[in-house]
Nucleic acid binder design. Structure first.
Lengths: 197, 197, 197, 197
DNA sequence: CATGAATGAGTCTTCATTCAT
DNA sequence: GATGAATGAAGACTCATTCAT
């Protein structure tokens, strides 16, 4: 659930308890922001993590930076997910599987989704987004080679659809059935087809 | 840009200056919240509208109510859009036109989009959302009768896609071209096709 | 319920509808402040009186003045009460009757009571208070002449006891029985008695 | 002037500086509310205490809670007063001494008095009021045993008289002499007497 | 390093009062 | 005279951030 980003940049290696705290905070923050959106208070994050507020600010000098760290963490996990899928799943289905899985988890990931929409993409996480982009690109190419996605579709379209549908998934009245039907439409749109407009 | 909802319910007609102010506030609020999201301050709305803070609260006793009023206003305009399209456009294309138009305006409408995701749909605007639902349903049926949308697609899927894509349209790095390509995929998914999964 | 203070000082006689409004406002104010204490809003008074807020301020340019007017009104009525009692009741009992009656009504008169404690006695109502003082003095003297109140008791002590007990009567947990028993003690204290300390 | 209620309930002991501030705030609040009544601003309390506004709200998350804390504090001190009197004073006089002392201090205690009348007794302070009740009951019984208060008088009557007279003591024009004379009447009422009504 | 108390700018909201209609 | 919309100062409360312990 938590990243293992040990010591950043050229700093000295973090003390063990410090690293543990960092990860507890990150996990708590993800949970809290997931539940209450990014306007939840830092104090609540500290409480959930079982540390004092000062400790949170020691690790993440700004709320912004905490939010960015969550994003990075999340995107990193997505990247590993994708890599695993690329290795294990049928090449033609991996992209679909990945998208479906992300949408499914969207409700618990209000954070990523919300963050993207709320604060925009800061430069700090640009590299992580880049990672996502590349992962998607890989899955996409394989799908196209396998003939399950039509030629001409590009990664940014897939990302656009992905984030959009995830946003949608946060809404009230969005149940499993609606999710399945909506994805079906999008997947149909992605599939190779003779009668493209 | 602003509605003309004059005097609600069974009250006497609003004084001219009051109605003018109400609309200036609504317009200002829409603009401000569009730029900065729903957490922008009411004070800024007042400033942009050129009125004192008290005036905003006289018209909308709560920030929530102001946000809801924007929603209602916006949804009302959408409804009129849809009605016009249903009357004027080719039956098979009206739905596509409507969706495309909404997405196109999404950037200016960060509010609606954001609101739906942020605060959820309160009962106050439920009727307006209902309106949207019905409008979409009408357009959808016509498209299906015209054969441009496959049978089996239901209004809630269309709404889900619509809100999702609108959300997506708010992101940085989303340009006209990406918009066009993304919509093309979704529209392909909606079109009648022989090789339905 | 309302006073008939027609036109103040040397001003021209008030128009009939104006005087009617003045009294409706006074009555409404008394009711509202009685219910919610003197911090109730002037707007609510206007609403209860069925007039616009501007009208209230036309008659009473300041909330303070409105409160003072209520006081005067109330004290005037008390004065008439006392005069009637002085004329009708048994001389030895009139004072007791009056005090008991006031305490009984205290709950509905949170205003007077509250006002005295809250804002202190402004000079504006001093003359009215003087009236009360005189009325009490009259009743007191008669009681003493009738032998039901010991010599040496002075009007200001009676007023002090009166206001104090009225305050007490506003408290939660103060019922008719407690009221009776408390008054009995005070009345015993007032009665002539051989064994004064 | 201030209590020493250190750390409430089962929490860890408060840091020294925090407790010091808590007490400065409590003392400041008591003074401010005593002067201006319970509608005085929290900001002024903060200023008088020499802390920032946030600190006040950190210790007392609500103005209500601050007021209640003052009440508790005050009632606690009264309770200790009573206990001391019960131990030291002549049994027959302790009650009279206590009441007289309270009334004497009433001006500085506008808070207690005002609070009881203004906001009513919330459950939070109910236990403290209960304490007061019990203390009074003790003093009362001893007085009755000593024969200085007639049988049949009950604690709630004494409390009613006490609060009432305290209220009265807040008024303008209430001087030491009036106080003495008024109390004399009430004490006479409480004393055992042959000619009970 | 961790703690958590203190800070204070910023937010929402209320209300007495003014004044154009 | 009456109306009620507008004003804006003031109040309660929040929260990111700092810093003494």
């Amino acid at each position: 659930m938590t990243s293992s980003k040990p010591s950043p940049g050229g700093a000295r290696p973090m003390r063990a308890d410090a690293r543990r705290n960092r990860e507890r905070i990150l996990a708590a923050a993800e949970a809290v922001f997931a539940e209450k959106g990014p306007s939840a208070s830092t104090e609540e994050v500290a409480a959930r993590a079982g540390v004092a507020i000062g400790t949170v600010f020691k690790h993440f000098p700004t709320k912004q930076e905490l939010l960015q760290a969550i994003m990075k963490d999340l995107l990193g996990r997505l990247d590993r997910d994708m890599a695993a899928l690329a290795a294990d799943d049928a090449p033609g289905e991996a992209l679909f599987t990945f998208v479906a899985r992300m949408v499914e988890q969207a409700a618990q990931k209000r954070t990523v989704v919300g963050l993207l929409a709320e604060t925009g993409i800061d430069l700090q996480v640009a590299s992580s987004v880049q990672m996502l982009h590349e992962g998607i690109a890989t899955l996409l190419v394989r799908s196209q080679e396998a003939g399950t996605v039509r030629e001409g579709v590009r990664p940014d379209e897939v990302i656009a659809l992905l984030t959009g549908i995830c946003q949608g998934a946060l809404h009230a009245g969005w149940d499993r059935d609606l999710q399945r039907r909506t994805l079906a439409i999008v997947f149909d749109g992605l599939r190779a087809s003779a009668d493209r407009r």
